[in-house]
Amino acid sequence: MNLFLETLIGGLLAGTMYSLVAIGFVLIYKASGVFNFAQGSMLLFAALTFVTLLEKGLPFAAALAVTIAILILGAILIERTVLRPLANRSPMTLFMATLGLSYVIEGAAQGLMGAQVHALDLGIEDVPIFIGDVLISQFDLVAAATAVTLALVLALLFNNTRIGISLRAVADDTRAALSIGINLNRIWQIVWAVAGIVGLVAGMLWGARQGIQFSLSLVVLKALPVLIIGGFTSIGGAIAGGLIVGAAENLAETYVGPYIGGGITPWFPYFLAIAFLYIRPAGLFGERALERV
């Protein structure tokens, strides 16, 4: 029973780390209906910028502030050079643009900051905490708290501020939003900047665990099944999807893995996601698309 509980809790906590990555996708998808292929590169760029500034001697807070400023500038640049010229094009065109963007961002990150591996110490010890005989990671607890806090802040931002309401209007009906004077370009800039900051938080936590290096961008592979399960348009769905994926993959690895050769964590979430696609194509919290035919 202890093993089951420990696996379940460990999986749920690990799942919140996946949610952090997935939230970045949700933000951009909500505002523009585009799956942002460059989210992983943005996450890498943000974390690499932060750790490079730290290594240059900047205090933690200053490095964080400068990185956020760079991400905001980056968002404005992306909106001006990539999104604005492609406004009113099909979602597939925008998707392909983000695909190209990911190469540009990765190349810029490696060209400007090098290819070395960086250690990142956030001051959160990765030590075990025992509740009875059940082992829980302190680092995972902090990461889970961060994810939940971030989700709450974003929920407040989107539900209670003018920007948030504008964003929801754009997401619901872009043309109607434009007709009542909402500045679509400004909304895109804000959303990409917020997605970058979410990427920074996710990149810092994942980077503290595995080091900040080029392959950090691969953590987004975990986000796709999370999004399919939770829905592409819901931050709460990203949290729920992350929890489901984290718990399911850990339980499956522990109880099913030994019978089928082990190492099943990479594909099991996708297997689960396909099952969800059959039952609930829009995900648990996703909006069902209704089209007039």
């Binding site: 780390m17 050769g261 190492g263």
Partner: peptide, 20 residues
């Protein structure tokens, strides 16, 4: 023998098996 699938950025279940 305990496999870790690529990329291996979450290994709790493997090391739980090691501990057992």
């Amino acid at each position: 023998q305990i496999p870790v699938a690529d990329p291996g950025n979450e290994q709790s279940s493997q090391w739980r098996q090691v501990r057992e």
